[in-house]
C-alpha cells in the first residue's frame, strides 16, 4: 500500500527497532530487579514486627482528610508559576467581623486550549454548518427545483 519496496522498508524499520530492542531488554531487567527487591524486602520483614499506626502528623491533635494535598494544591506551585498564561480564576471570601464564621477560597484553572482555541473554532464551524440547514426545508417542490437547477447549471457549464 505504501509503494515502498520490501528491502528499504526493512532498512528503515531496522534503524527504528534497534534502540527499542535495548529498551525492552532494560525494562525486562528492571522488572526482574523490582521482583527481586520485593522478595528480599518481604523476606527481611518476615521475621520482624510490622505494626500499623497513624501517619506522622508532627503531633497535630486532630488531622482530617481535608488537610491532604489535593490535585490543584499539588499543582499549585506550577500553576502560579505560569499564572499569566493559565488565567486561574480565584474567588476569595474574606472572613468578616471580629468573630468570622464563614470564609472560603475557590480557585479554578480552566483548560486554556479548550477555552481559547477549540471552543471558538467548533462553535463557528457549527454556526456555519447549521446555517446550511435551510437546504432541507421539507417541501417537495423545492427539492425538485434543486434537481432542475443542478441540471441547468451542469448543462450550461459544460455545453
Amino acid at each position: 500500500m505504501t509503494g515502498l519496496t520490501g528491502s528499504d522498508v526493512q532498512g528503515h524499520l531496522a534503524v527504528a527497532v534497534s534502540p527499542l530492542r535495548s529498551v525492552v531488554l532494560i525494562s525486562g531487567i528492571l522488572l526482574v530487579l523490582i521482583a527481586l527487591l520485593a522478595v528480599m524486602r518481604s523476606r527481611l520483614l518476615a521475621g520482624r514486627k510490622v505494626e500499623l499506626s497513624g501517619t506522622w502528623d508532627c503531633g497535630y491533635a486532630r488531622p482530617t482528610a481535608r488537610m491532604q494535598y489535593t490535585a490543584s494544591s499539588f499543582a499549585q506551585p506550577l500553576t502560579n508559576m505560569f499564572g499569566v498564561l493559565l488565567q486561574t480564576h480565584r474567588s476569595l471570601e474574606r472572613p468578616e467581623g471580629f468573630f468570622p464564621t464563614q470564609a472560603g477560597l475557590h480557585t479554578e484553572t480552566g483548560d486554556i486550549f479548550r477555552r481559547n482555541v477549540y471552543r471558538p473554532i467548533f462553535q463557528s464551524v457549527e454556526r456555519l454548518l447549521l446555517w446550511l440547514h435551510w437546504l432541507q426545508q421539507g417541501r417537495v417542490q423545492i427539492y425538485i427545483l434543486y434537481i432542475a437547477v443542478t441540471m441547468l447549471i451542469l448543462l450550461i457549464w459544460n455545453l
Binding site: 501517619t55 506522622w56 502528623d57 508532627c58 488531622p63 482528610a65 488537610m67 491532604q68 494535598y69 494544591s73 499539588f74 499543582a75 499549585q76 506551585p77 506550577l78 508559576m81
Partner: peptide, 18 residues
C-alpha cells in the same frame, strides 16, 4: 509520599515535582 495523605508529604511532593 502522597499515599500517606499527610499535608507535609504532599507539600514536599509538590515542591519536588515543581
Amino acid at each position: 509520599a502522597l499515599d500517606t495523605g499527610s499535608a507535609f508529604e504532599g507539600m514536599g511532593a509538590s515542591r519536588e515535582v515543581q
